[in-house]
Amino acid sequence: MEVAVVNPGDPLKANRLRRSGASRNALRANLLRLLLPLLLSFALPLHAAEQPATTPIRIGLTPVFLDYQANFVNEWRQHLERQLGQPVSFVQRGSYREIVNLLREQKLDFAWLCGYPYVRNKDELRLVAVPLYQNEPLYQSYLIVPATDKQTRSLADLRWKNFAFSDPDSNSGHLYTEYLLIRQGESPGSFFGKTFFTWSHRKVVEAVASGLAQGGAVDGYVWDTLALSHPQLTARTRIVNRSPKFGHPPFVASRAATEQQIAALRQALFSMAQDEEGSRLLQTLNLNGFVQGDDHLFDEIEEMSRFVEKQRP
């Protein structure tokens, strides 16, 4: 599913996007055939708006956070625009890989990305900032099962079960679980019955809550945040295992971003905790703020990544 928020400097289009986003839930209940032309209708103006008069800063967003709140994303964009004094364009894509590809092709200046694709593409990317979650630039991967499942104590109990991953390029939603299995001489394909990707952490929770999957790997930060905003959803899942702490998905810059831009964005992110609006946005994000961080935060992920890639056929 592609949802793009752009800064065309055109309030009409922005309004239309807001409306489209807000009506998404309502649309779900309607006939599906309505969805396709609708999506097309606002996928087209996106390209037209990518070359506005003043070049906007292009920031890619991935489902490392709650990426479905169009209204919030718009507010955050406007906040950053004010901070940077420059138009900001958020680009959302359905998978990490698409964002990574855009970064590598320098079609994006920045992106909020998982640590796993970051360490894999370290040569081409620069670390900008790391979010502070519970006052640490760290997060965990949760192994969750449906709340109705009272037996499962560990991953080993999920053999032959159906398992939901979030994204193949996600650390918490894929790499960590795969790493654990490979270390035991297994692989997701051999160990589980059926595995599938939901392309979003939140949807892993939904898949497990509905019973479609008997287990799932999910970003602990997303689960915790959902537990605050949608407790009835997370209550239908149970956390079986919490991983060790890893570096939180960071903001990274592509080669297209200049040093000034990096510094400006860094400053804008750091200062969020200082002003009222920024604090409110951080509160919605369930974050404490941003820090510069360093590459060592992602050493464990890099280690797992190397290990897993060696074992992959």
Partner: peptide, 30 residues
């Protein structure tokens, strides 16, 4: 069924699940 063709070709269980669930429920309340 028409909408399901693509997700099934791509073995996208979650998309298929979302599609068939559309007429039935909101995933939040379950």
């Amino acid at each position: 069924a028409n909408t399901l063709t693509e997700p099934m070709l791509h073995d996208d269980v979650w998309r298929s699940f979302e599609i068939i669930n559309t007429p039935f429920r909101s995933p939040e309340t379950g």
